[in-house]
Design a protein around this nucleic acid. Structure first.
Lengths: 229, 229
DNA sequence: CTTAAATTTAAACACGCGTTTAATATTGGT
DNA sequence: ACCAATATTAAACGCGTGTTTAAATTTAAG
């Protein structure tokens, strides 16, 4: 407010000069945009991040989003594709060896460790799947939940047929409970942290995972006596 | 597209005439705004609803939001205050008789029945509590979760001390699991519905509640034998 | 009867959004 | 050496947003 009184807008000078830049190698605008988009979209959600914010974070201009990805949504989709590729492979992997897995506890550990190690997954689910107009919901239902849920249900079904689970257990409800126990602690981290005094560090997470696996196992096995109606 | 070719904007004629209206009683603009705000804000979230949408739904103009509530956020807060008043009383009620309640299953049933009967609660939690910049998060942590969680933990603590729960049970984890089981099924309704084939009708919800209460009870009681490490 | 207060309409405001465009500079192929 | 393709900047575009304002009209009070 001291020297630039009558300048209408102060603009920090662009580092890059006009026109096609020299072959500077490691100045990759396209992936800089993808990186910035990952950081911002995954944390705050599609709608809450502006194209200008991403451009600034990638040290370029919004026009580059149009140039490389057409629209903001195009950038979002490209970013998402790259981000969930590892998760897709993980699911495909557990799907291929579906016959071998028998213990729900193994599934619980896998799910929770993945969610704990990749905090952006929970944020993405809140912003783009559970929210009314989430732009990832359809894809998520088709490619992620739609493949994982039948796997879980079949696993539970087999365990029940094998006698290790209660005969009267509804596998759909049991699958829902399993997902609830695995996902909600991370989705509700911003509330559960302060309210329950959780730190969400690695040691605590391992204890939570053990607790969860044991709770689900004890809650579904045939061995447990009913306490009352 | 036939007769109004050169009219720049067709505007449906306002029903109300200019100036201060006669004392017509049941034409209450203020509560019409609150009603419209409830319907729209609670379903779609604060950011995804425009002041104009609310004004149209209340059959008035955005200027009335300014007149009665100052800003869109003021309207949101007034609406929210009115909406959560019953929930607040419910919590206060269960807080006053905290000494009497002993069975976690009672809490589970209460929570899930409330969530099932008021679908807007889950939507509100997704949009305004779990989302990064949710405008209800701070209040929710202070007034809702911050009061309910200690109650749940104390209840579990007493049950454990009384011998009905496992001695090695971490009450914070158990409280988190209880909340997960109660809340997530409704928060994730848009996914769980199609993926698990749930209809979320009343009969099904009663079975889900029974399943959940039993799962949690069996998963936390001292009676259950460990199956293995 | 006069006048101040209350309530509403229609119009505009300033701003930020995603997107587009024109100009410009560099590259690599011929 | 030329030239088309490529990559970038700066500026603008049109639109929708929340908000504000001026005028208009009625009520209620003095």
């Amino acid at each position: 407010m001291s020297s630039s009184a009558q300048l209408p807008r102060r603009r920090r000078p662009r580092l890059r000069s006009r026109g096609r830049p020299p072959v500077d190698a490691d100045s990759d605008v396209r992936s800089a945009l993808l990186d910035a988009a990952s950081r911002l979209f995954l944390k705050h959600g599609f709608e809450r991040v502006t194209a200008r914010q991403i451009a600034v974070a990638a040290d370029t201009t919004p026009a580059m989003i149009h140039y490389y990805f057409g629209t903001k949504l195009g950038l979002f989709r490209a970013m998402l594709e790259r981000a969930i590729a590892p998760v897709r492979e993980l699911i495909a992997g557990s799907l291929s060896q579906a016959g071998a897995v028998v213990d729900p506890a193994v599934l619980i550990r896998m799910h929770m460790r993945t969610a704990a190690a990749n905090p952006w997954i929970a944020t993405l689910i809140v912003n783009e799947v559970l929210a009314e107009k989430g732009r990832f919901r359809a894809t998520f239902i088709r490619d992620v939940a739609g493949r994982q849920a039948p796997l879980v249900m079949e696993l539970l079904q087999r365990a029940r047929a094998g006698g290790s689970l209660r005969k009267d257990l509804d596998v759909r409800f049991a699958a829902l409970s399993l997902m609830s126990l695995c996902i909600f602690p991370f989705v509700a981290r911003a509330v559960a942290g302060p309210v329950l005094g959780l730190k969400y560090d690695e040691e605590e997470m391992e204890r939570l995972i053990a607790h969860t696996a044991r709770l689900f196992a004890a809650g579904t096995t045939a061995a447990s006596r009913e306490h009352h109606a």
